[in-house]
């Protein structure tokens, strides 16, 4: 690919690709961020995401509606998360073990749900088209030419940021994640808050999976999430549990992915494996530097993260 004619449209094309590659990470990462802010560590993101992909594709194919497919994907993620919530929040089971089991369960269930749909193709989710605006050269497609998933992901980032730092419910969620003993002593419903957060995270992960099978690559293939759930988990940690940083990290990751694909195609002479590792290295490096910059005396992570809570009553 020749790089000597860098026109605005090529830049736009690259940016559009970056945004679409980042969208599933944003959706799943923001969901997990809310879960972890409430003090629960759900390692089952990959499982909920892949089940969302299978269920989303199945529902969309059966009903012929991408919208219902997206709802189906989110619902499947939510149901799987509900199981996790019953175990870890209700029965105080170990969160790490339950989360890992959830991933394995989700991979298995998705194979079952998607068995009849392997090899089928659908049209990708429709893209926004505003006459005039979308056709603007250079920025039209970047701003006004995406599918609903992309806009939903961006709204989710802003919405969760606003929820966590501008609403009372968000304050309670953060308090529960910081010290469940203290918040319980104040009479706040620790387990209810955590269960709802787990459900929200599951729905987000399911929606992220549905985006993959309905919009990003509109078909179903087993294990098609290809580790994106794990990357979303890592993003949350390296983003210091800040929604805007999760979005930035996801975009960086998407950007590095697109960049290394182009670099491999251009034949730079570097080993392909090294280039494939580039997005991971770049994202980790950037977010580590970001979190180093503002170290204070308090704890960056939700202090109760991963600790089970069983009230005495």
């Amino acid at each position: 690919m020749s790089l000597d004619i860098v026109s605005l449209d090529i830049v736009q094309m690259v940016l559009v690709t970056v945004l679409t590659a980042a969208t599933p990470l944003i959706l799943a990462g923001i969901g997990e961020l809310v879960v972890e802010r409430s003090g629960v560590l759900n390692l089952g993101v990959e499982g909920m995401m892949v089940l969302g992909a299978a269920a989303g594709f199945a529902v969309a194919t059966q009903t012929g509606s991408t919208g219902l497919g997206a709802l189906g994907g989110a619902g499947a993620g939510l149901l799987l998360a509900a199981l996790f919530g019953v175990l870890t929040v209700g029965l105080a089971a170990n969160q790490v073990a339950s989360g890992l089991a959830l991933t394995i369960l989700g991979l298995g269930l998705s194979g079952l749900v998607g068995a009849g749909y392997v090899g089928m193709k659908r049209d990708p989710a429709p893209h926004l088209h505003l006459p005039g605006l979308t056709d603007l050269p250079g920025i039209g497609r970047l701003l006004f030419g995406h599918d609903a998933f992309v806009y939903a992901a961006l709204l989710l980032v802003v919405g969760v940021w606003w929820f966590l730092w501008r609403t009372r419910a968000g304050l309670i969620l953060r308090a529960v994640g910081d010290d469940h003993t203290a918040t319980h002593a104040l009479g706040l419903k620790v387990r209810k808050v955590r269960f709802l957060a787990v459900l929200f995270g599951g729905a987000c992960a399911g929606l992220a999976g549905a985006y993959l099978s309905l919009a990003y690559t509109p078909f179903w293939a087993p294990a098609m999430t290809a580790g994106r759930g794990w990357i979303a988990l890592a993003l949350v940690v390296f983003a210091s549990w800040q929604p805007l940083r999760v979005a930035a990290g996801a975009l960086l990751f998407g950007g590095a992915t697109v960049l290394q694909l182009h670099a491999q195609a251009a034949g730079l002479g570097l080993p392909g494996q090294l280039l494939s590792a580039l997005p991971y290295l770049a994202t980790i490096l950037a977010l580590v530097l970001l979190s180093l910059g503002r170290r204070r005396g308090g704890s960056l992570a939700p202090a109760a993260l991963g600790r089970v809570f069983a009230p005495s009553r």
Partner: peptide, 10 residues
């Protein structure tokens, strides 16, 4: 019963 990482007002 205070959350260490929240502010006084929070």
């Amino acid at each position: 019963s205070l959350c260490e990482n929240l502010t006084v007002a929070e």
